[in-house]
Every structure is written in C-alpha cells, then in structure tokens.
Design a protein around this nucleic acid. Structure first.
Length: 705
RNA sequence: GAGUCCAUAGCUCAGGGGUAGAGCGUUCGGUUCACAUCCGAAAGGUCGAUGGUUCAAAUCCAUCUGGACUCACCA
C-alpha cells in the first residue's frame, strides 16, 4: 500500500464510511452475538427546518463517542436518529420563506400550507441526514423516525386521552401568553422578559389615585385593589366607588388583597383580569366581589368595542390618545417617566406578549412533576453535571399548569371535538367521533388547534419505539442534549415518560453547553460568526472537527471553537498518520509468531496498559474532554516523541528489532482503539492497514479491560 | 427580587489540603531522519479580594468584588 505523507481526510472518510455501512453494525440487530447488554441513546431529533449547524455537531459527536465506546465494550448498542417537525419553529421559518416570495399562509388553505411544509421538512431531513453521516456518526438510520410518523402521533393521542380521562388535562378559559403577530398562545417557557422603561401614569379614579403603565386597559377594570391594612384606603374596602372616566361614569368595587404593596405607586391597583396575570389571579381569589373579566384587547392587538371611540385602534395608538384625553380632562395626576419594569415578549419576534383569556387545553403539572422530582432525588436518574440538579428541582417545584394548545397549522392536530349543542368535548385517540359522547348530537366541531410541539416531543423516549424495540431498549441509557432545553424538553420527557411508562426514560442526562466563538460570543447567522461544520470537515477533516469540539468541552459549560483550534487537531490527526507511517515502513519484514519481549518493551506495554485504564476510567465518568486530551498527549508526546524516537536504534539491532516491532504495532493498535470514539475515521483507516489480526471494523474491536 | 455557575499562564480550560498543569499563542534554535500539518529549548501565574478552619489552603468555610446564565405575579 502506498501511504501519503499527509493524511488525506476527504478521500479516506468517504471510503471508511461506506465500509462501516457495509458492516451493518450501526444496527444493533447486526452486531455479533456476543453483544448482549443493551445500550441506547435516542438522538435529540433535529429540527427539520434547517440544515445542520455546529451545535448539532457537538451533540452528535458526544453521542457518537458514547455509542462507539459502548459498542466496543460489547454492548448491543442502538443510536436512534430522528427529526422533529418542530411545530411553531418550522411554521415561523416557512412563513418567512413565504413572505420573501410575497406569499402568506392566510392566502392558502390549511391543507395546502401543511403539504408545502411537509415537503419542505422532508427535503431538510435528507440534507441533515447526509450532514450527520459526514460527521461520522454511527446511528441506525433504518430506525430513523419523524415526530409526525403515524406511531408517534398515535402515542401522543393515547397519552392525551389517558390524561384527559384521568383528570390531568382540562379545558380552561384562562389567561394565556398570546403573540399578536404569530396569532398563537404560548406556554410560560416560550416567552422572554425584557427590561423596559415606560411612563407610569397616576390616574385619578375619583378619590383614589393609582399607578399604571397600561391606561388603555381601564375599560376592562373590574375592581380596585388595596392592601387590607392600608390606613389610607381602609374606609373604602368592600364599598363600591363611583367616579368619572373619559368614557363617562364608572363604578368599581374596592377589594382588599395582600398582594398589593402599599409602598408601590399609591398603594392602589386597578384590576384588569382579562389582560394581566396578577389581576386574573386576583379575580380568581375575589370572584364573589367582582364581575366577569372584560376583554379590552383582541387577538390582533386592537381595542375591542368596550373602548368606545378607541375601538379598532392598536394598543400604542390607543394609549397615546387615551392619555391625551385624560390629561385634557384632568384625570392624570402625574407621570413618572423613569419607571423600568420587565415586559414579556414573544421569544421569536420580541413583540410584547398580550395576556388574553382563551379557551385552551391545560395540563395539571403538579401531579406529574412529583415523580420527576423523586426520580432524580432517589438517584434513578442522574444529571451531568450535578449542579443542574438544583435548577431541575427548583423549576419543578415552582411549575405551573401547562398550556398545550397552539393556534398553528403545522403540528399534531388535537383530537378533541366540541358539541355545538351541549358544549361537551369528546376526546378520542385520533379517530373522528360520529357524535357527541354526552348528548349524542351529531353537531360537533373539531378543535382547530395543534399541540405544543413539546407535548409530543416530551413523549419521544417511548413514542419513538416500535413495540419490540421498546421492550429491548426502554428505558434508554443516556440523554445527551444542550442545557438550554432542560426545561423545554428534558424535564417534560421525565414527567410524561414517568406518567405513561412508570419508568424514567433514561438513566443519565448529559448536558452540553453552547458553542461560542473565540471572543466568547454566541454563534449566530446575524453576527456572521458561525462556523459551518460542513465547510470545516471539507477543509480539515471530520476527525479534527470532532476533537476540537470535544477537547475543552466540559458538561454544562459553553465551549469555545475557533478555526485555529480545529487546525491544531488537524495537525494531531496528521501526526498519528505519520506515526502509523513510520511503523508501517519499519515493519515491512515483520512476521507474527513467537516473540520474546525485551525488558524495555514489556515496560512500554505495561505503561500503555496503565494509560488505557486511566483513559477508560475518564470515559466511564463522562470526562470526554480529559480522556481525549490524555490520548492526545500520550500519542504525541510519549509514543511519538519518546518511544518512537528511541526505537530508531532499537530497530537497527537485529536482537531487539522484532520485539520492538511487535510493541510498536500493539501500542499503535491500542491507540486506534482508544481514540476511535473520538476520531473514528483515521483510526479505522490505520487499523485496517496494520499488520495485525483484525475484525471487519474497528467499531467492534474490543475495548481493553 | 431569588437562584445557579464561574474567577488558575497572553487565550481556552483541567486540577484540587502538602515543589503550580495541558493545549493554543509567544521567543530562540533546528529540514539528508515518519511528520515543517515537524523537532528541540525557553519565557510566562503571590490560582479575583479579605477573613476563618488547619501543622499546612490555589484547593475547605464565610464575606466581598467582578462576570455569565436561569427563574420571578410588584401594578
């Protein structure tokens, strides 16, 4: 074989990957019979709305390391890939595309839109699959699953029905976070808080003055609240107060609630249950004393007809006009223009979230949160790094009910039909009911909403499996994902999996960090600092990229990647290549057979054994960065710099030549094994060309014990 | 407002009760050698501050400072 001076990653990788594919070992069913104990990782399904980015590459590499390591340890190893329809996310991406073409989903039928997005996601899935393969990942694509595959949807429906039957899901007209641009409600997780400075208006409601940033919601006021002990207002509590407003005379009940802070503003608050979360809760506490909430703002972010002359105006416009009118009429006492507070905004478009009362499906989360707390507490599940356990507990202990209705088109349609005669909701596991299950009326209508994507992806660890695999591989071994979706996804998987299967979906949760550039900036297209993994593999090779992504990457911490770093590991890969080349050139006459090892050679092997034990221990403890670093250091600065340098005269001597040849080959082989999970391509290539007894692939070579 | 994490060499980070570590970078010297995607050598840190525990603290504890992040119902 002719070996080039410099390692050619591009050519090698193609050939090696097709060799792997030919072995079929990505599929656990094809592994040799001695692979018994199961090991399974479910790949977090990549959003099917965009090609792969560097973040995917980090996760994929970490998972591939665990997969390859466990496969080499004789486990029946499954890495199950998938892709996510990513409901709202994808809808937003696709709507942007439509916008560029001068189109809009509102000019299309729902079916048309769905079909177009479907085709778009299927195309993306293929691209991402190809890209992941070029990262050298050893996932079993024969089990590739889409979050909209029939068996996944079926499971989602079964869970929804089960939860509804067991009283864990309710239909409620409650205040929800609503984005007037995207025209959908969100859960508490999908909103962001932004610090804003807004004028704080001191409005005169007859004898009481109160402070508000939203004077335009005054038409929806249904009470005024004060602290029960506030001397200034005690005399009004429980009484109705009549006063003038810009729309004429109005009457409000003065209620007492400890929520009101006497020190803030004037110590009196206007209560607008239809447009403020606190006020809504206040109404829930004081239902007897207060009328029904009054809707002042609609789904388009415009004033409703209770706003009289302001009806149809956008909020900002109405506010300005209302303030002007109040000033004219002397209803404003003063304006504090330096008031800063945090405002909820849509995490996508950053527009202010309007709290609106909407009829939606909610999950009672407290009962399903408890088992998730217990599972971590009693050690059934472990989070790496441990520090995230605290965050996990804190979030679950303060969890609120989860709104799972989304007013989107792209997603899993909710299997609920409302009777137009009696109002009853009939829930099925997917099939369309013929009539209302309560009053037998045929006059029923399907809920137009879809599920929050996280409701179905929260079921992914069990929904993804077909029956036989579920039995074999559930619960899975490790969930490896970014810390940024701990609440969105990981905790939901814990809750829903425990609820449905009674078992935690995985034993370990490994959280990796975000990828940042050399100035510690988040990578984003708009900043122009993204590193495209595909460009990098093309230029420096996949192994170099993988090493750069892993070394210096600690669980739960962000990882800094730069082209220089990748270049450094490209050099390392080339170094190994040349170590191999040296050995090959110097073992052309080598014939296996009886060998008497020199004392020195025995020592080299012994030292290497120690090294490999230490590296194994690090991998077992999920210290991938340190493990890789240790192999790097041994290979370069011990094996190449010292052992090989000293071998030159040893190889010259007939008496010691064969012993040293044997040792060099053995250690080289050992290095390819230890390094294979991290840099699979170059190690396989070397393994295939070493003068040793070998298996069909390094993938199933046994890990040193 | 609450919580979590972090602070060690120019940079990115390991380590962790008992002579301060790696990679990259820098400086100097080296190509007939497997590799210039290389080799050899060197410089560079009172381990954020203060106090405490200890025979001994960069390491454990407390407080502080600075930074990152997360959660949160002050109109």
């Amino acid at each position: 074989m002719k070996i080039e001076k410099n390692y050619n990653a591009k050519d090698t990788e193609k050939k090696i990957f097709s060799l792997w594919k030919k072995t079929g070992y990505f599929n656990p069913d094809n592994l040799p019979k001695n692979h018994k104990e199961n090991f399974c990782i479910i790949m977090p399904p990549a959003n099917a709305n965009d090609p792969m980015h560097i973040g995917h590459a980090v996760g994929a590499t970490l998972q591939d390391i665990m997969i390859r390591y466990n496969r080499m340890n004789g486990k029946k190893t499954l890495w199950l890939p998938g892709s996510d329809h990513a409901g709202f996310e994808t809808q937003v991406v696709y709507e942007k595309k439509l916008e560029k073409q001068g189109r809009s989903r509102f000019q299309m039928t729902r079916e048309q839109f769905y079909k177009e997005v479907w085709d778009y996601t299927q195309k993306n899935r293929k691209t991402v699959k190809k890209q992941l393969e070029s990262m050298g990942i050893s996932a079993d694509w024969s089990r590739d699953t889409f979050t909209l595959d029939p068996h996944v949807i079926k499971t989602t429906y079964q869970t929804f029905k089960k939860m509804a039957d067991e009283g864990l899901i309710y239909r409620g007209s409650r205040l929800v976070n609503f984005c007037t641009k995207h025209k959908t409600a969100f859960s508490d997780l999908e909103i962001e808080k932004l610090e804003k400075t807004d004028p704080l208006y001191y409005m005169k409601y007859g004898p009481i003055t109160l402070a508000t940033v939203r004077p335009e919601t005054q038409f929806g006021d249904t009470a005024i609240a004060v602290h029960p002990e506030d001397k200034r207002y005690k005399k009004y509590i429980g009484k109705k107060l009549k006063f003038n407003t810009i729309l004429g005379e109005k009457e409000l009940m003065i209620i007492a609630d400890k929520f009101v802070e006497p020190e803030f503003g004037t110590g009196a608050v206007k209560i607008t249950p239809a447009h403020d979360f606190n006020d809504f809760e206040m109404w829930e506490r004081h239902k007897k004393e207060m009328p029904e909430p009054i809707k002042t703002i609609d789904e388009d972010g415009k004033m409703t007809n209770v706003a009289g002359p302001y009806k149809g105006m956008k909020i900002d416009e109405a506010r300005a006009k209302i303030v002007q009118e109040m000033l004219n009429k002397g209803f404003i006492d003063k304006i504090d223009s330096n008031y800063t507070h945090s405002v909820s905004v849509c995490y996508k478009c950053k527009k202010t979230i309007e709290p609106l009362i909407k009829s939606q499906w909610f999950i009672k989360t407290k009962p399903i949160a408890k088992p998730a707390i217990d599972a971590l507490k009693n050690g059934e599940v472990e989070i790496i790094p441990k520090s995230y356990s605290k965050v996990y507990f804190h979030w679950l202990k303060n969890i609120r009910d989860w709104n799972i209705s989304r007013q989107n088109w792209w997603g899993i349609a909710i299997p609920a039909w409302q009777c137009l005669d009696c109002g009853h909701w009939t829930i099925t596991t997917g099939s369309t009911p013929k009539k209302c299950e309560k009053c037998d009326s045929k006059n029923i209508q399907r809920d137009p909403d879809v599920f929050d994507t996280w409701f179905s992806s929260g079921q992914w660890p069990f929904a993804v499996f077909k029956k036989k695999d579920f039995k074999t591989f559930y619960p899975t071994s490790v969930m490896e994902t970014g810390y940024d979706i701990l609440f969105f996804w990981v905790i939901r998987m814990m809750m829903l999996s425990l609820y449905v299967t009674k078992k935690p979906p995985f034993k370990k949760i490994y959280l990796h960090g975000l990828v940042r550039d050399k100035d510690r900036q988040k990578m984003s297209k708009s900043k122009g600092n993204v590193i495209d993994p595909m460009e990098i593999t093309e230029k420096y090779g996949t192994d170099a990229l993988r090493l750069a992504l892993i070394i210096g990457n600690m669980p739960g911490k962000d990882v800094v990647i730069s082209e220089e770093k990748i270049k450094g590991y490209r050099n390392f890969v080339n170094k190994i290549w040349n170590v191999f080349r040296f050995i090959l050139i110097n073992t052309e006459d080598y014939k296996p057979g009886k060998i008497i090892l020199t004392k020195e050679d025995k020592q080299i092997l012994k030292n290497f054994e120690k090294k490999s034990l230490s590296i194994t221990k690090k991998i077992d403890n999920f210290k991938f960065s340190q493990a890789a670093e240790e192999i790097y250091h041994y290979t370069w600065h011990e094996f190449a710099d010292k052992i090989i340098e000293k071998s030159k005269p040893v190889l010259e001597d007939k008496k010691t030549r064969k012993s040293r040849q044997y040792v060099l080959i053995e250690v080289m082989k050992g290095i390819t094994i230890l390094l294979h999970p991290f840099a699979p391509f170059v190690t396989e290539k070397i393994y295939q060309n070493l003068p040793i007894k070998k298996k069909s692939s390094l993938m199933i070579e046994s890990w040193p014990k």
